[in-house]
Design a protein around this nucleic acid. Sequence first.
DNA 1: TTGAAAGCGCTAACAT
DNA 2: ATGTTAGCGCTTTCAA
Lengths: 342, 342
Amino acid sequence: MGLKRPVVTLKDVAAEARVSRATAARALNSYGYVGDETALRVQEAAERLGYRGNRVAQALRRGQLPIIGFVLGDIQNPFFARIAHDLEGELRKRRHNLLIASSEEDTAQEKALFESLRGLSIRGFIVAPTSADDNAHLEETVREGVPVVLIDRAVKSLECDSVVVDNEGGARQAVDYLINSGHRRIGLLQDETRIFTSQERLAGYRNALEAHGIELENSLISVSPSTVEHAIEATIRLFSQRKPPTALFTVDSLMTQGALLALRSMGLSVPKDVSLIGFDDFNLATFTDPQITVVAQPIAEIGPLAAQMLIDRLSGKKDPPRNVRFPTRLIIRGSVSRRVEV
Amino acid sequence: MGLKRPVVTLKDVAAEARVSRATAARALNSYGYVGDETALRVQEAAERLGYRGNRVAQALRRGQLPIIGFVLGDIQNPFFARIAHDLEGELRKRRHNLLIASSEEDTAQEKALFESLRGLSIRGFIVAPTSADDNAHLEETVREGVPVVLIDRAVKSLECDSVVVDNEGGARQAVDYLINSGHRRIGLLQDETRIFTSQERLAGYRNALEAHGIELENSLISVSPSTVEHAIEATIRLFSQRKPPTALFTVDSLMTQGALLALRSMGLSVPKDVSLIGFDDFNLATFTDPQITVVAQPIAEIGPLAAQMLIDRLSGKKDPPRNVRFPTRLIIRGSVSRRVEV
DNA sequence: TTGAAAGCGCTAACAT
DNA sequence: ATGTTAGCGCTTTCAA
């Protein structure tokens, strides 16, 4: 695998340019006084030697690594992948790297991750916490003065910025729409209620039913991890009951896809046999026949805003925490049918 | 945002346990000789103070940060998202973090990324290089002795491990199947030929045509960045010609989805008007009606193998580079129709 | 305008 | 079994 060549340090550059390390540093980072000629000589020397500053040493000196941690539940969820993409772009402009770490929706793993990342002296965190309640690790991080921005999922007790959407409203609107289309037995496919969005979307579901005087039936609610495979199973369970729902509301796009696949495998057609609305839009939602009605989130705005909030904190902004909540939008397509009561 | 509390260092722990820093380090990292009693006292002190080793200082000392860089073109591509997920899991077991950095399929940006990440003294890289040719940055990284594992895309001149699939064979088999189904005007929707997989998949397309004595027509090849939006445009261009193709082969799942959407928007039905095969399987491929015929990759094996290769290198394995190429599999579903020559 | 020197937190060779 | 000390590469205060 080739010969290792020694790494060029500031000392080498300084020697090459025949100045002290201090002067070399000044010339390369353009601060303090340096003679024009000297500066040039140092820069040339650095160039010639292929000098590349050791960011670890700089970090040890300054106390922080120019890295932001993004802690999420699942990078395979297109929603988070999009956010990650946007965050990385914004941070790149600030010469920071993004370290994406997955909790796999496991609170213990999320805590371990924090333990490990905190030791890295990372500058700040953007987090979609796995649990709405169990957040000692986040509190400690905030208490130690490390900026945290919550994304997609808030934590009430935490004094930090957050960017979420109107989960309750979006879910309520969706279920409302199903009810107004004549449905009474409306299934809910959600992930664990430990998760903030799940709680709020459940609340929206519950509130919509209540507003129409429909009693909530636990047998119509199916809980599963948010993957296509698990959602398939959960959907099959839901629709294998003696009195299955006539409509289904799913809380994210992976689950919507799982539900679609499951219903098809059971020979149930959408929207003839089952009406469907999913939270979170997705690429193929308009390709399927019928097209899927969804609650869309303003996904393009979430990542950039969160990045900006974090950057503001990094540059010392001391305002009280901002908690932004974006509205959602019901996009009516063709997966809901009118149901005439029997 | 709360009071900053001072960070606990080894020195504090040592003082608390009334031992030297060396002893404290030994007790905490369990190496060298430490008295049982002393060790216990140190561990208790660390616990009490909430000591968390400074990984940056450790890295400066040891010369490396326990971080692996994953440089890819687009985290929003489900293929890469899956790989990232698997890599992270494997590396976590080795107490390493994964830093995902996106080149956005831009070679210049990829180079800048390397420049920046090399300065971080990252332990190794897993890379899906943007260009099959322009790889001075990779060569330099390898030359400096930093382990690199190529994934999805190889670079011939580079002395390092790689994990790819049989792109030429997979593409050839797909196009073969189209030809055997009676198609002669077969469109190709691919990303830029700078990209390794694109080159190989194009070769497969070309070879299949050639084997059947069909002349390649440039007007049937459409190049676009690999996003759903760009693929939609490119597909529309392809099928707006006076003599459009009767079949289409797309080189990845995002493009397949774009093609699907575009064809639908043009009122062309699959497979009646256009037959379709996509490289890379995807969740909804079996939901659409008809289900989409695809060339599937053994995606579950790629990430773990690459991770293992890198880990082996990190632990000093000196074998000559391994270049693994997985076979692909044509999964015949319903998006190809027999075409009777007119 | 430049240089000398201290020190960030940690590890490990060496000394005791 | 434990302590002393040097030094990883860099920045920055202080002195010249």
